[in-house]
Design a binder for these strands. Structure first.
Lengths: 340, 340
DNA sequence: TTGTATGCGTTATCAC
DNA sequence: GTGATAACGCATACAA
């Protein structure tokens, strides 16, 4: 690498002390307008930018943000990364990624070490890892700035961005009922996740409001994987009086439902409506394309980034009040009016 | 953050100078075995690890690796990230991501700045950005360590990992012909990409070896997107004598072909075989599941990481000779013996 | 409004 | 084989 200009070069050329240059760099208020301008000009000419390492060493900051996740949905991860970067890069931060294993025994320690070894200034945590109470506690204990992205309001609002899955599922329920459907089944997500519970309850409660009860045998707990979607769908569709609609907790499982329906010669959506969640890459591509729910991922991610940076620079929590985003229904070809 | 132990703490407790501790940390050879052991013990007890910022400032290194990409395939990106991390994290490096816009006028400068502003030690570049001659040149000019991941051997072998798409496509061609197919069509990728050219040529040349020529009207240039796959498929399938096989340059476009075939009532694979490339998330999920080509992404990524780290630590290029990986054919349900 | 001096935690240059 | 000591580039008490 070529030698970059340092703050000393700027100071020398400007005929001031580096302390003053430092003030300009950090947007100080108490610098004479003339001096200010002179220094800025030289900074521009030299193309000077402060060295992050040195800066960090002196101010004990790294200008690094971390992203912690253990999520099978690559599309979601990618969108979040871009969303976070869109705000953090223009603020001078970089993004360091850290996939982890939620189930590993040392996962909490692993994440804390990740932050410490690089002096990461703050982390964003994706679901489902974001649901870990232990991780959040460990981060607090270590005074590490963090923001969780989740489906439930399980932390202080400065530390979380919540996707209102419950409301979205309520919308979906209303939509399906409006199509005339009464016999509805669900392939839920693992009930150890809050997100799965939220979605199931949002769906079930709204149905109940509309006078429809979801019998227990119409609810099967899946594992959010394609394979799991397949086996759950088999259980639901092998019955004599099969349901008219299946809602699956995510698009992966919904794709599994489509697969099974195809195998069994059940026509979707004529004979069976199917809905998913995520608006995965799959959703628009499968045949028939999936009715699903889309989270405003980019909005969530940039909001999370803003919150983290606000914490780091402990600014007045301006927009920090903002924490709730609402997913919206996307209607495609896999749902249709009930027959008869 | 809590105060972490420093090298001074270790030195004091061990009753040696920090210079000696530094030697131990960096695996120096010229330290007495007893001293060595004593210091190591204290390091372990304290849970000491050297501060990356300070270390970087002194040694002008950051222990940061960069990942540069502009790729619509999130799954590929995710796999690469995990592959790179699997080797770099255990060597004490972190991964900083940098999505960019290949087509933006300042994209080269943008990438160089990215590296410089954080003193990134080296970067891995994903396709198709990796094909940029200008970027590679700029990195060399700035003495930045880099490794490209590509489908063509377009750089020194220390600076590239090549996926032998040509060979893989040759395999695919042989396979299709072995099924009895003679009337074959291609939706190629944009011919401005080497990867697209390699795949098309690998496919076409092998067909020619087998005595089959691919007429020009059986080749349509797509844009690698789902929508583009749809419009190209329409052009190919609307003809009276439609082909028996369509190979699409990637799975996205192949999914588009499936969509069109479905719309037109053409049965896949009974009436039309379809093959893609990537082994995308889609490939196994669509109906029928896609015959495709899988790149050994994790292997490519970790090899790339090893090469970069070797360059950074300018070690003898042990495994640096290694640069070629071969994708392999995955046969699923979208291809079948030709009817006649 | 501006400058001086010191420290951040590590590596590197010498000398011993 | 080991140890003072000076960088590295910047931020920040503390003065002026």
């Amino acid at each position: 690498m070529d030698k970059r200009p340092t703050i000393n070069d700027v100071a020398r050329l400007a005929g001031v002390s580096k302390r003053t240059v430092s003030r300009v760099i950090n947007g100080a208020t108490n610098v004479g307008a003339a001096t200010q301008e002179k220094i800025q000009k030289i900074i521009d000419e030299l193309g000077f930018s402060p060295d992050k390492q040195a800066r960090g060493l002196a101010a004990s900051r790294s200008f690094l943000l971390g992203l912690i996740y253990d999520n099978p949905d690559a599309l979601f991860i990618d969108q979040v990364q871009r969303g976070v970067l869109s705000v953090c890069s223009e603020q001078g931060y970089e993004l360091v990624v850290h996939p982890c294993h939620y189930t590993a025994p040392d996962f909490v320690e692993n994440c804390v070490k990740f932050v410490k070894r690089s002096n990461i200034d703050g982390v964003a945590i994706l679901p489902p890892v974001s649901e870990s109470k232990e991780l959040a506690q460990a981060l607090r204990d270590n005074k590490i700035n963090y923001v969780r992205m989740a489906s439930v309001d399980l932390d202080d609002h400065t530390n979380i961005v919540v996707s209102d899955d419950r409301a979205a599922l309520s919308d979906l329920a209303r939509y399906l009922v409006s199509l005339g459907h009464r016999d509805i089944a669900v392939i839920s997500g693992p009930q150890k996740y809050y997100s799965s519970i939220e979605r199931l309850e949002g769906f079930r409660d709204t149905l109940k409001e509309l006078g429809i009860t979801l019998p227990e045998n119409r609810i099967i707990e899946g594992k959010n994987s394609y394979e799991s979607g397949i086996s759950c769908a088999r259980q639901l569709l092998i019955q004599n009086n099969r349901p008219g609609v299946i809602f699956a907790n995510n698009d992966e499982m919904a794709a599994g439902v489509l697969k099974v329906a195809h195998e069994m010669g059940i026509n979707v959506p004529q004979e069976l409506s199917v809905a998913g969640f995520d608006d995965n890459l799959l959703a628009a591509r499968v045949i028939p394309s999936l009715t699903t729910v889309q989270r405003p991922v980019t909005a969530m991610a940039s909001l999370a980034a803003k919150k983290i940076i606000a914490m780091i620079e402990n600014r007045p929590n301006d927009e920090t009040e903002d924490y709730l985003v609402k997913p919206h229904l996307i209607i495609r070809d896999s749902t249709r009016k009930a027959e008869k």
